[in-house]
Design a binder for these strands. Structure first.
Lengths: 238, 238
DNA sequence: GAAATAAAAATATCAGATGTTATTGCATCC
DNA sequence: GGATGCAATAACATCTGATATTTTTATTTC
């Protein structure tokens, strides 16, 4: 199974054989993608009840489709399914945020090491392109233009994916995609971003990866995620 | 979301708040558990088409329920959902087996280290009990009694879970539970087991964990999984 | 104010109808 | 004979609506 994430081009219901792992793709308009987006971006609040009748109106879908979607999201951990009591947006907590960040460090750094070891010229090319696009967007953000947060986050996702894409494990990329999205929900909840520090960390990981400096790249990525965690935790109240 | 696995007591559709991560629990008789069991134990062959009408007869469930179940399993990676072409049991491959085993090493060893660091007296007690039960069953298997493979695998699961259960991360336990089940499917496909070596490795991990010898425990666990991988790969043909 | 009970709401499951897409079999053509 | 095009069939995806069960809410009673 190829990795799925919100920025995914393909329809979640119709995975094709393309190898590109996907996250946060707001292009998709399936019920699955729309609900997942709304959970990640906080339009559906953590812990809130997902009444089927309400969802029916809101997403203009039948109960069958909605239940299939909610079962999928429950399996991924964005929705809690309680027998005979319906569906709820998975609650958030500091502990959970901690766990997600730690797992992201574990998996993403591991994948980065593999990717740097395996990456070919195409990998480098994609990485350069992804960093360039992210960097342009980051400049805009630093100038105070906060109108394109979703685009910004898509570029962030595409950069982090480009880093690890040559790791050689689709299973690893799949797990990472889900973790990224869970982490992203927390980032969206606190809605503060770290500015120049994060930009510089991106640049440093990028440079080290291109230079095939595994240790520097992995260490910097670890710091990058952990600083993001601290930043989120500081702004986060249960 | 608490970890789910085949040996799970609770109904997959009705997760409660109990913290016990679950795998291969054949007690459950929900459609979800029955189909998942049949995939893992090879009664539904890798790659085979899951025609809804056939499943309807076989599991005596309505199309709605089946589609919800298949969506869940698709999300976990046991089923492939192809748009307008229906559902298929996820195919197997040597590469996939490799990936699964490597991820299990990464996550399970990491969790074991945390667990040894955090584990209290209850953890030790559970671990002793789990190893004892597994060991008894292993003796039976060594004597040639192959009539209780599912029970044996449940005890194996419970032992590996007991090792890592004090890791302090529900997210980690969830990811591990799915990986264990995927790995188990490959073990069931080749249907050969390793005998005394594996028994001794279990004993060694167990002793090291109780002695809080993190390095020995993690190294032995790594060897245990990797030897299992080699053994499965040798018997596995695409 | 708490406990028991009745009413309402919501869920889970099912059956059946409809439109769409994929697959299959057959005839045709080169 | 093999490839191509077309019709018939099968299968999927979605929706509506019905029923039984369970949970939640409101009301009554003590």
């Amino acid at each position: 199974m190829a990795p799925l994430s919100l920025f995914c081009q393909r329809n979640a219901q119709s995975p094709d054989e393309s190898s590109m792992p996907k996250s946060l793709n707001l292009v998709g308009t399936s019920t699955y993608q729309r609900i997942k987006r709304d959970i990640i971006f906080g339009d559906l609040a953590p812990g809130s009840k997902l009444k089927l009748d309400n969802l029916r109106e809101r997403y203009e879908a039948s109960m069958s489709t909605l239940r299939e979607t909610l079962n999928r999201l429950a399996s991924e951990g964005f929705v809690d399914a309680l027998d005979q009591r319906g569906f709820f947006v998975t609650p958030v907590s500091r502990e959970d945020l901690h766990e997600i960040a730690n797992l992201r460090v574990l998996l993403e750094c591991h994948a980065l090491r593999l990717s740097i070891a395996n990456g070919d010229t195409d990998w480098e090319g994609n990485l350069v392109a992804a960093h360039h696009k992210l960097h342009l967007m980051e400049q805009k953000m630093l100038e105070g233009d906060n109108s394109q947060i979703e685009d910004w986050k898509r570029y962030d996702w595409e950069f982090h994916l480009a880093l690890i894409e040559a790791c050689g494990s689709n299973n690893l990329l799949s797990l990472h995609a889900v973790l990224y999205d869970k982490y992203l929900r927390y980032q969206m909840l606190v809605l503060t971003h770290r500015g120049e520090d994060a930009v510089e960390e991106h640049r440093k990981v990028f440079k080290a990866a291109l230079a095939r400096d595994v240790e520097t790249a992995a260490d910097t990525l670890k710091v990058h995620i952990e600083k993001g965690l601290e930043h989120s935790l500081a702004a986060f109240t249960d």
